[in-house]
């Protein structure tokens, strides 16, 4: 009996089961955050929803008259004066489609580079691991605008990348990368790569490598082990990484704006255009934002369901 540790006592954390020192003040402690986020984010999103059903005022703003025009304009073309029979309007659907495709491609690209990187870092000796991780995360903390401008500087027609490639003889004339979908892709990939690495790293670090050894013992080669044992075990990290890359890519503004130019518009630029400049159409911008937000929420709900399922599975 003696010597057998009692687990009940000091290991007990107040947060788990006692009324606790702070529980009576809980409401007061949480109130400031609720208030600030509720008033300055939740309420604005609600107001944005309302605005998307109002009538546009030329040169910005709205007229307080209910209207479905914003959503209608999104899908149908009714001619310049709105009196022609409706035809499917492809402009905006195309922009949304392009955004989804770009975001998906960026996600795949980030995964292809990010997974081996995360895996490599997670299998370093403990004392070097955090230095590697630091190296990967530093660029994320550098201003996104500066990073995007840097990327543009690097890949422009007579920029260092082209000069380097010409010098090596890999190409005979400069690649025209700027203002292409590829440049946007590169920008998105560059912007959000750390978001893929971090969650995958976290789950690989928790992975029990004796499972891999067991697989090897049962005649699986490395790649079979990776496919059948390791990846299924780290799926939650992969899903988290994909969501974290996909969501901001979908609504990205800087990469498409600076690297893509007018031909390669994505949702972000479309929305921005409605609130800046003279072509402003606030209800339409609000509607586009609502559609974007809904798509993001769907992705997040899918993610939450995955997480819950993962927790249930242990």
């Amino acid at each position: 009996m003696a010597g057998g540790g009692d687990t009940g006592g000091a290991g007990r954390i107040a947060s788990e089961n006692t009324p606790g020192t702070w529980a009576p003040l809980r409401g007061w402690l949480l109130a400031p955050s609720w208030l600030v986020i509720g008033v300055f984010l939740l309420a604005p999103v609600g107001m944005m929803l309302v605005y998307s059903f109002l009538t546009k005022e030329f040169r910005g703003g709205v007229i307080w008259e209910l209207s479905l025009a914003a959503y209608d304009q999104f899908i149908f073309d009714r001619g310049l004066f709105g009196d022609e029979p409706p035809q499917l309007e492809w402009t905006y659907i195309t922009i949304f489609g392009r955004s989804i495709a770009q975001a998906a491609a960026a996600t795949v690209l980030c995964f292809l580079i990010g997974f081996p990187t995360a895996f490599f870092i997670a299998t370093r000796p403990v004392h070097t691991r955090s230095a590697w991780l630091f190296l990967v995360t530093v660029p994320y903390w550098v201003n996104l605008l500066i990073r995007t401008v840097s990327m543009k500087f690097l890949i422009r027609d007579n920029g260092p990348l082209n000069e380097f490639l010409l010098w090596t003889g890999a190409i005979s004339e400069p690649l025209a990368l700027v203002n292409t979908n590829l440049a946007v892709q590169l920008g998105l990939f560059y912007s959000y790569l750390p978001f893929m690495v971090l969650p995958i790293y976290a789950s690989v670090e928790r992975y029990d490598f004796t499972l891999s050894e067991a697989a090897a013992d049962l005649y699986a080669d490395r790649w079979t082990t990776l496919r059948l044992v390791l990846i299924p075990a780290v799926i939650p990290g992969i899903v988290a990484g994909c969501i974290l890359v996909f969501v901001p890519s979908l609504g990205a503004f800087l990469a498409p704006d600076l690297l893509g130019g007018a031909k390669n518009f994505m949702i972000g630029s479309l929305i921005e255009e409605q609130f800046k400049g003279n072509a402003g159409n606030w209800p339409f911008g609000a509607a586009a934002s609502m559609i974007l937000l809904s798509m993001v929420l769907v992705a997040l709900l899918y993610y939450a369901r995955q997480q819950i399922r993962g927790e249930r599975a242990g």
């Binding site: 009692d6 687990t7 009940g8 006692t18």
Partner: peptide, 16 residues
């Protein structure tokens, strides 16, 4: 272990 000793003590101390 688990018979309620700590709980009793914590009630006397005022934590529960």
């Amino acid at each position: 272990s688990g018979c309620g000793k700590t709980t009793l003590l914590r009630m006397i101390a005022g934590f529960e």
